[in-house]
Amino acid sequence: MQTVVDSKIHDLETVKEACFWFTSDYLIDIQTSGDKYTLSFSLKEGAHDTKDIAGEFNNALIETSIRRRLRKETEPIRNTILACTLSHFINTPAAAPKNGNGAE
């Protein structure tokens, strides 16, 4: 199966991330040419062929691009959550720094 992706809509990182789960059953080749990525999916030996693999891959691209957008948008809050989480550990007595010789 061959499918073409417009690089103005989905960048290469999105394409690669979307490809990942398909690598269980397919060997995937990506060629760049102008504003296009041409992807070739070839079924691995013994693997299960998906009906309408092109359609499935298209859905995967859309989901992946949503994921990537959300990742960027929520990065500041994620950092806040992590900082707040780690402060639980820094403020507890058990986390007080040991004396320098590291004796147990």
Partner: peptide
């Protein structure tokens, strides 16, 4: 509203 970080799948 603004979404918080999360993962999803179908």
């Amino acid at each position: 509203y603004a979404p918080m970080p999360f993962n999803f799948k179908r």
